[in-house]
């Protein structure tokens, strides 16, 4: 099995294989498309499941090691599932000088997780991002695409409590 170079990993069941095939056919024959493929795959699953990456490797002939190398290089890619609400906390310079660190500490304490982690109930994932570009509103965070600006530790906690309350 191994001598054909197929790595023998292609048989694991992949969820939504039709949609995955659709993504792959979009980039068929276009060299250098790995990053775009991974972006679309992440768009499909919200993260990059191992089985899906193995499937991409099998279909495109791009070696698994290379795919894994690219997936771990770029911060956009996630190899673990994320929570229902992703909190993007801006780490830009303006946010830093206006107290982003204190906001991070407040969020971590409120949710009981560290940066990059997901809460046990699967509700929240906290991710630091380079700059959201809303410098005049600093410090800012983005939850599910909505920007919350001019944060204080207290305000950040209240926002999280509101989101939590809306889930109950």
């Amino acid at each position: 099995m191994a001598c054909c170079g197929c790595n023998g990993k292609g048989n694991v069941a992949v969820k939504d294989v039709d949609k995955l095939d659709e993504i792959l056919s979009k980039y068929e024959g276009i060299k250098g498309s790995l990053i775009s493929i991974l972006q679309d795959v992440q768009g499909l699953y919200e993260y990059l499941p191992e089985e899906a990456l193995n499937y991409v490797s099998e279909k495109t002939g791009i070696q698994r090691a290379k795919i894994y190398g690219v997936a771990t290089f770029y911060t956009q890619f996630r190899l673990d599932p994320v929570g229902k609400h992703v909190i993007l906390l801006c780490q830009g310079t303006a946010c830093h000088v206006n107290g982003a660190k204190a906001i991070e500490e407040a969020i971590c304490e409120e949710l009981g997780i560290s940066e990059g982690e997901t809460t046990e109930d699967g509700l929240f994932t906290l991710t630091n991002v380079a700059c959201l570009g809303c410098c005049s509103l600093s410090p800012v965070m983005m939850i599910d695409g909505e920007v919350f600006g001019k944060l204080t530790p207290k305000k950040a906690r209240e926002i999280l409590k509101e989101v939590k309350a809306s889930e109950e």
Partner: peptide, 25 residues
């Protein structure tokens, strides 16, 4: 358009080219 995937170093032109070709930047 080619969308970057989150790597500051890809602002460096040769890293950008690597990224455009689908590699680690």
């Amino acid at each position: 358009i080619k969308a970057g995937a989150g790597a500051f170093v890809c602002g460096e032109e040769t890293a950008l080219l690597e990224s455009l070709e689908g590699n680690r930047g």
